[in-house]
Design a protein around this nucleic acid. Structure first.
Lengths: 247, 247
DNA sequence: TCAAGTTATGGTCCCCAAGACCCTAACTCT
DNA sequence: AGAGTTAGGGTCTTGGGGACCATAACTTGA
């Protein structure tokens, strides 16, 4: 890892930052928390929240700290590291390597209100990536990678339940899959597969209030803790032969 | 990403290294290329090859350079970034954040011979992770993550063909899946699924020499270039309900 | 030259997961 | 009370995946 006859001071110094892509589901669409930059470079543009890593903390701890500073949320274990970015010149001021984390939250709306509302906003990811909203640095690429990662993790992990509250209905959980993947899933089949998977969700026995449009009240579930190695829901296109392209 | 009123020189400096986990299939077992450290710390122990990132190159270019320096192989595009590691104290000398890449090669044996044979060796991954072979730094964890990544990528990408030569038989390709996953796959079913997936492999029309034990000569294939978003082969356990644990 | 062993590969059958689609239950409105 | 809406159970069909058998084409050894 280190060549012989080495002298630490001879090697280039980098700043290391941790950026946290905070995703949430709102209105059936995937949203990302972005902050507006107040200083040059890229002043006035939207950016992914982040900050410098301290030598005394791990990368994961730095991500957790940044998440807490930004949203007040102090939830461990929903942070997923998904990439490191170090292209020369990605920050015009200095050599910066950033390690990017993905955080999935439920309803950050009220959290946002607590911070400086002008400087932070929840923006639909398709709008943020539309090219019209210019993102600072290489943050468009980072956001794209984050979305790709959450799409994959939805199929392989229990990350879906992080989008919803401590108790949730099948419709709410299904809306997560539909929103992230941009597909429509049959409610009956979805329900069957989720409850069939052992330890995935736990019925609470209670029922949710129906919305103002009526309808049968839905059962409320809690998330089980069988969260590793493959959930019950498969992406429809990814099992199709050939044709399918997700983007 | 950067707080207001900032001064670049006020933030902690890190060394950034790139480590390349070089995996290959030999004898039906997954092997990793490790180098023996010649200097303290961890002198005499095995380590993952790597080196410092230069400010003028991207992380991917640094990984490619390290791979070429170590093996002489100059193959692009089979490098996969899979993690960043920055725990405090992971290198006792200084603050180091390392970005880890996975490289899949075919038969590095002869390449090794060209380098300093005493300082580099191909070691079966299960032996390297067995605890008996102590790895330097946090390289055991990095290697574990690399193996986990290649297991996942085997199902989602065309990385399997990187393990074999430019032309290969079905048995060789199947041995990759069996070795990486540690399972047995039916030859007939494997063949059917691989050939059915459009653009995955291309028949060359030629046939391989049978081994000394005889047998019908196998057809030779080239890798197609439909390498993204899901190959034809699924991990057996991961479709099973419940019980299965891969490790 | 023939028999036995070995490997590749095609054929067949079976099972179950996934999806499409229907129905009923239980609530909301007017 | 009736219409509209949502939840959730039932059923049928399709197709992919795996188990297993059969055959082809080579080896070695007698």
């Amino acid at each position: 890892m280190v060549p012989a006859g080495y002298d630490p001071s001879r090697f280039p110094a980098f700043a290391v930052t941790v950026d946290v892509v905070i995703l949430t589901m709102s209105d059936g669409r995937l949203h990302v928390l972005l902050v507006r930059r107040g200083v040059a470079p890229y002043e006035g543009m939207w950016a992914i929240p982040g900050g410098f890593k301290r030598p005394t903390e791990t990368l994961g701890e730095a991500a957790k700290r940044e998440l807490a500073e930004e949203t007040g949320v102090d939830s461990a274990s929903l942070l997923t590291q998904f990439g490191a970015y170090g292209d020369p010149g990605r920050d015009p001021r200095m050599n910066v390597v950033t390690v990017a984390y993905l955080a999935v939250l439920r309803e950050v709306g009220n959290v946002i209100a607590g911070t400086d509302a002008a400087a932070a906003a929840l923006i639909p990811v398709d709008k943020a990536l539309n090219g019209k909203t210019g993102l600072a640095f290489d943050h468009a690429r980072i956001l794209r990678d984050a979305v790709e990662r959450v799409r994959v993790d939805l199929e392989r992990t229990g990350i879906a339940t992080a989008f919803v509250g401590p108790t949730f209905t099948m419709a709410e959980l299904r809306a997560v899959y539909e929103g992230v993947w941009g597909v429509h899933l049959d409610g009956a089949n979805f329900r069957r597969r989720v409850v069939a998977e052992d330890g995935w969700v736990i019925p609470t026995g209670r029922r949710a209030q129906p919305g103002s449009t009526g309808g049968k009240p839905a059962e409320l579930y809690r998330a089980g803790r069988m969260w590793k190695l493959g959930g019950p829901i498969r992406h429809p296109q990814s099992s199709e032969k050939g044709k399918g392209d997700l983007r």
